[in-house]
Design a binder for these strands. Structure first.
Length: 426
RNA sequence: GCGGGAGUAGCUCAGUUGGUUAGAGCGUCAGAUUGUGGCUCUGAAGGUCGGGGAUUCGAGUUCCCUCUCUCGCCCCA
């Protein structure tokens, strides 16, 4: 450590052992759950034209203003994706997916990059699994997406997720724009009572005053007009249908008028999943409807809903809940008494592996005893012992490594049966 | 970008008011009868005390700088 070793970049991490297993479990759960809802997988590039994010996420957002990794290797401006939705929609349009059929359900996973100060649950390279359902404005779809996210958390063993829900309206003049005005009017008399930050945001982005974490601002915000009660008739109707569907699904949620979210593209439904294990950043996933994004990126007007889940935050919750998985156990460890046996053993293991039995052996020239010890430490269910006795008579010793297991020496032709007998019984 | 805390063996940490060859537990490796693990015992390896500079006869210990980690602010996953 004292040497001039090269370390990973600030805010990035290596995952191995239990972390590797947790990460893998999250990926498997995503595949399993999202597939069950009819989503297919999409992988888009990690970098895209800078303009895509500027237009998609919004020029005035923190992400675009100060958190993007942007490069100019040649004449093009490219940036490492800070979120997944923009890239998916870009791909959707580039391949004219909307012309091939109605609703497209896509899910993705992969690294995202944001140049923020690292802290608990926040890194500069982090991972998300996310879904985008493009091509329907059905409120039932919003509800399905929300329920699916909860099913994902359940699949990785996370309990205690809190779902917050709100509607922030649409781009119609009598909807969000009008709500903004009523909000400003309600705030104006008391503006000096809000924190500095909020006063600055009053003109630029009033909605942000709603989710300020400053306690006194929070108190003031509680009495302000609520967005889901001031959106236009269509949005109000949509929101009502979403909550109705969630109730029918038996989904537990809270309507939170202060839920705003930081990306510009959201319309109507917004939601966030939070968990108490996470510390200051308690959002473990979030999403909403974005009916204007496809058009904003140069396509036709196509509605969509989606969410993104932070894999690292999922891993933190898994760890604190003890929902972690153990690494898969090794079934067989091969122990060889000498050079000839060592060679023969590698052939035997190759056969077993083709039959789907996980096995390993020593490659460091360890003593017989040390090989036994390794077999025990590795948690192998069975030790296969091959010494000169066995080699001469064409046999193999199969030893049950569990507490009071025995061992038996059988002809090589019966090795597999002997192993299977122990594994299936156990 | 701005604050608080921390950096001593692979891991978790001790290290007294600055004083000889920097310690423990766990882990690793090797032994304890010839080919049998887990328990026990014995031994070994492994640290320019994050890096650089300053003060001092002498610094893991004091001071400054820097890097990184960590927790917050901001914002988000």
């Amino acid at each position: 450590m004292g040497k001039n070793l090269i370390r990973c970049i600030e805010g990035t991490r290596d995952y191995f052992d239990l972390d590797g297993a947790r990460f893998g479990k999250a990926m498997k759960a995503a595949d399993h759950v999202f597939t069950a809802y009819g989503y297919s997988q999409i992988h888009t590039p990690v970098f895209e034209a800078t303009e895509l994010f500027a237009r998609g996420i919004g020029e005035a957002t923190d992400i675009v203003e100060k958190e993007m990794y942007t490069f100019k290797p040649g004449s093009d401006m490219i940036t490492l994706r800070p979120e997944g939705t923009a890239g998916v929609i870009r791909a959707f349009l580039q391949h004219s997916m909307h012309k091939q059929g109605g609703l497209n359900k896509l899910w993705y996973s992969g690294p995202m990059f944001r140049r923020e100060r690292p802290q608990k649950g926040r890194q500069r390279q982090f991972h998300q699994v996310g879904v985008e359902a493009v091509g329907s404005s059905d409120p039932l779809l919003d509800a399905e997406v929300i329920a699916m996210g909860l099913q994902f958390y359940a699949a990785v063993g996370i309990t205690g997720i809190r779902t917050r829900l709100n509607s922030i309206g649409c781009s119609a003049p009598e909807c969000r724009a009008k709500y903004r005005e009523t909000l400003r009017e309600a705030i104006r008399p008391n503006l000096d009572k809000f924190c500095k930050n909020c006063q600055n945001r009053f003109d630029r982005n009033v909605l942000r005053l709603l989710d300020c974490k400053n306690p006194s601002c929070k108190e003031l915000a509680a009495n302000l007009p609520k967005s889901h009660e001031h959106v236009c008739g269509e949005c109000a109707d949509h929101f009502g249908k979403v909550t109705e569907a969630l109730d029918a699904f038996g989904v537990d949620y809270v309507i939170d008028p202060t839920l705003v979210r930081g990306l510009d593209y959201y319309t109507k439904t917004v939601f966030e999943y939070t968990h108490s294990a996470l510390g200051a950043q308690d959002a473990i996933g979030g999403g909403g409807r974005y009916d204007g994004l496809v058009e904003e990126l140069g396509g036709p007007s196509i509605p969509a809903v989606g969410f993104a889940i932070g894999v690292e935050r999922v891993m933190i919750a898994m760890e604190t809940l003890g929902a972690c998985c153990c690494t898969a156990p090794l079934m067989v460890y091969g122990i060889a008494a000498g050079d000839e046996e060592h060679k023969a053993m590698s052939g035997l293991l190759a056969r077993l592996r083709r039959a789907g039995v996980s096995c390993d052996m020593d490659f460091e020239g360890k003593s017989f005893k040390a090989q036994m010890r390794t077999a025990g430490r590795r948690g192998a269910l069975i030790a296969l012992i091959l010494g000169s006795n066995e080699l001469e008579t064409g046999q193999i010793t199969v030893k049950d490594m569990r507490e009071d297991g025995g061992q038996s020496t059988v002809p090589l032709s019966q090795m597999q049966e002997a192993i299977e007998a122990l594994v299936t019984v156990g």
